[in-house]
Simulated assay, not measured.
Amino acid sequence: MHEARAYVSAMKKNDKTSTAPRKQCGALPFRRDDSGRIEVLLVTSRETRRWVIPKGWPIRKLRPNETAAREAYEEAGLAGDVWSEPYGVFTYDKRLKSRSFVPCTVDVFLMRVDKEQKRWPERDERERRWFDAQTAAELVDEPELSDLIAALPERLDLSKAERPRKAAGGRR
Score class of each variant (00 low, 15 high):
20 A>R: 02
21 P>K: 00
3 E>V: 13
22 R>Y: 04
18 S>W: 03
3 E>K: 12
11 M>W: 11
37 R>S: 13
4 A>C: 10
13 K>N: 12
33 D>R: 00
16 K>F: 13
10 A>F: 08
28 L>D: 07
33 D>A: 03
31 R>L: 07
7 Y>W: 13
16 K>A: 09
32 R>E: 13
28 L>E: 09
10 A>Y: 08
31 R>V: 06
12 K>F: 11
13 K>R: 14
7 Y>H: 13
34 D>Y: 01
6 A>Y: 13
26 G>E: 06
27 A>V: 02
34 D>L: 10
28 L>P: 08
30 F>K: 03
8 V>F: 04
12 K>H: 12
14 N>L: 14
30 F>W: 12
19 T>C: 04
24 Q>F: 08
27 A>W: 00
31 R>I: 04
14 N>G: 15
5 R>G: 09
4 A>Q: 14
24 Q>S: 11
36 G>M: 05
29 P>E: 01
13 K>C: 03
35 S>A: 09
16 K>D: 12
36 G>T: 01
25 C>S: 12
23 K>D: 12
15 D>A: 03
7 Y>E: 15
30 F>A: 04
9 S>T: 07
20 A>G: 02
11 M>L: 15
35 S>E: 10
26 G>A: 07
23 K>C: 06
29 P>Y: 02
25 C>G: 07
31 R>W: 03
25 C>E: 10
20 A>W: 03
14 N>R: 10
5 R>I: 13
28 L>M: 13
29 P>G: 02
14 N>I: 02
18 S>Q: 05
29 P>L: 01
37 R>K: 12
24 Q>R: 10
32 R>T: 04
5 R>V: 14
38 I>P: 11
22 R>E: 06
24 Q>G: 11
29 P>Q: 02
7 Y>C: 11
27 A>P: 10
20 A>I: 00
32 R>N: 08
24 Q>N: 09
5 R>A: 15
28 L>H: 05
15 D>E: 04
24 Q>C: 10
38 I>M: 07
34 D>C: 02
31 R>C: 09
12 K>E: 14
26 G>V: 01
17 T>I: 02
31 R>E: 11
33 D>K: 01
33 D>Y: 05
8 V>T: 05
37 R>P: 06
19 T>Y: 05
4 A>H: 14
12 K>D: 12
38 I>Y: 08
30 F>H: 05
18 S>M: 01
33 D>S: 08
12 K>V: 12
32 R>F: 14
20 A>E: 04
4 A>E: 15
30 F>D: 06
10 A>R: 00
23 K>W: 09
30 F>N: 01
38 I>S: 09
27 A>D: 06
33 D>P: 12
33 D>Q: 03
6 A>D: 15
36 G>H: 08
31 R>G: 06
22 R>N: 01
13 K>Y: 07
16 K>M: 11
28 L>C: 04
8 V>H: 00
10 A>T: 02
32 R>I: 00
3 E>I: 14
27 A>C: 05
27 A>F: 06
21 P>S: 01
5 R>D: 15
37 R>A: 14
15 D>G: 00
11 M>N: 08
7 Y>M: 13
35 S>V: 06
15 D>T: 02
8 V>G: 03
37 R>V: 07
34 D>T: 08
15 D>L: 02
11 M>C: 14
35 S>F: 07
23 K>T: 11
11 M>P: 07
35 S>M: 07
24 Q>D: 08
29 P>H: 00
38 I>W: 08
